[in-house]
Every structure is written in structure tokens, then in C-alpha cells.
Write a protein that binds this DNA or RNA. Sequence first.
DNA 1: AACAATGCCAACCGCACGTCT
DNA 2: TAGACGTGCGGTTGGCATTGT
Length: 290
Amino acid sequence: MDHYSQYVDNNNQKSDEETNNLDLKRGSWTIEEDFTLMNHIALHGEGRWNSLARSAGLKRTGKSCRLRWLNYLRPDVRRGNITLEEQLLILQLHSRWGNRWSKIAQHLPGRTDNEIKNYWRTRVQKHAKQLKCDVNSKQFKDTLHYLWIPRLVERIKASTNSNNNQVNNIQQTNYDNIIINNNNNNNNIVQNIMNNFKQENYSSTTTTSSENSFGSTQISDISDNCYTNYPLNQGDYHGEILINPTSDYFQHGIIDDNNHQQNMSQLFFDDVSDKFWNQEDMLFLQQQLN
DNA sequence: AACAATGCCAACCGCACGTCT
DNA sequence: TAGACGTGCGGTTGGCATTGT
């Protein structure tokens, strides 16, 4: 969607006493306001938002200007779908810090806290709702920890492998160069994430066995509310992560690599975020949780 | 085609905290 | 020390877009 197509009219603005008294504007920003704000910041820098709004001649609060700049106008703001790697990071960091959106956003260059918060609320909480469990419940955290995150890793790996094959088999074109570059980035990111996981898994000296909500045993850090303890050795992690090695899900679902990798490589180029939980997944999860 | 329900996300709000005077 | 002000944060809202009936 064109970013500016949202600028319709300002009749939806609320009539707030303070706003009326000060003749301040609310609601969607216009192109003219955006340019005014950008030009002013380019000339004078950011900060002191209230006085900035006044001196720029914007009939906006300083808060509104700051928010518009940080969430939308900043040149380094990244837009578009949250990538698999970013999803993985969000899940991982949220399990560690909770709703500390700004802190999480610091680890996703170009993404704003608002965007990550919206992602969490619209996607992650939606899945919790579908599973009929609270997003903060141990059950859902286990689901994230033992299913969602491992599958993310799997899909990232699959897409990486898929891209490798493509690159190896096809003569290079400009498009292939893009794949190569993205592929290298993916490898680096995934490698870093895996290294982080492994460090967290094995650096702790106080671990104990405990039951997760699916009834199987996990290695868990006693004092930490961080759900990043699953074993993650590259190449063999999925066999240890899975909940019940005898279940049909295990037999026919996750480790069905032939179908899986193919599907994953297709998914990589789609918006994958809503395709994590197919009907089979949902049925299985609901069975586990009920 | 029309309406309702749902998803998505930009923007706003209230609060907390730090700095300045 | 206290109050004013600026800033940043997380939660919430509102409206457009999309999907379902």
C-alpha cells in the first residue's frame, strides 16, 4: 500500500480540550507535515521536541513529532514484513525480557519498538488465542520454546539450504547475486543466534531436569525465566527438541525433511508469519495443551 | 453486492524518570 | 527541595484494508 494513501482527511481527529485550545492537530500526518518535519530536523537536528514543533511551525505536540520521526520518517527505519530471522530474534528476546519492546528493538536494526509490539500483539498473541491459552502461560511459552522457535530455525536453515542449491545450480544473474548476498546474511544471523543459544544452554552451571507442559523432560535453568534452554547443536537439534518422539507429529510432521524443506523454501519467499501453524499443527498443539 | 468481522498498524495516552532551574 | 519540562516507554485506540458470509 502506498504509505501516503492513508492520508485522507482529518475529520477523524478527536476533539480534545487541550488540542483545541492550543490549535494542535491530531491524527494522520500529511505529506506537507512530513516534509516540514524532515527538513527541520535535517537543518537543526532532533531533540527538544516541543520547541522543535513550534519552531518548525507544526501544529503538533512534541511527542507527536518525535513519534512520527522515530517510527516513520527516520531514514534508517526498515519497512516491510518481519523476516524469519527477525521473528526468531523477537521470540528469543521476548522470552528473556518480556514486553521490553524498546530493548528488543535495539537488537533489530531499523525496526521500531512500535512495530515489534504490533507484531507481537497481532501475530503471537493471535496464536495464543487460537491455542486457547494465555500468552504468558507456561504452556504457551513451552509451545514457543519447543515448537515455534525450533521450527523457525528449521525453516531458516531450510531456506538457506534451498538458496544454496539454487545458487549452485543456476548461472549467476543479478537476481542470483541478491540471493547470494541474502544467503550470506542469513547464514551469519543464524550462526550468531545458534551460538547465542548454545552459550546460554551450556554456560549455566546450575541446571536441573524439570517437566515442561507437554510432560517431557527438559534441561532447565533454575533461576532464569529465559526459555532458551533447548539443546541446539547444528544438524541434530530437531531430534532433541521435539516433544514426543513417538507421536505421529514427530513421525510425519517436523522431521519429514523432504517435504519440509521444499515447503519451507517456498514459504521463505512468501509471508511466512501466518503459515507457521497449519491445521495439523493447531490440532496437535491443542491436543497437547488440553 | 452488501454487510459484518477481523487483521493490521499508525498514532495517541498516561505514566515514570531524568534534567534543569 | 520542589516544580516544570523533556523524553521514553508500554498499553491502548481508531480507522483503513482485507476476508468471510
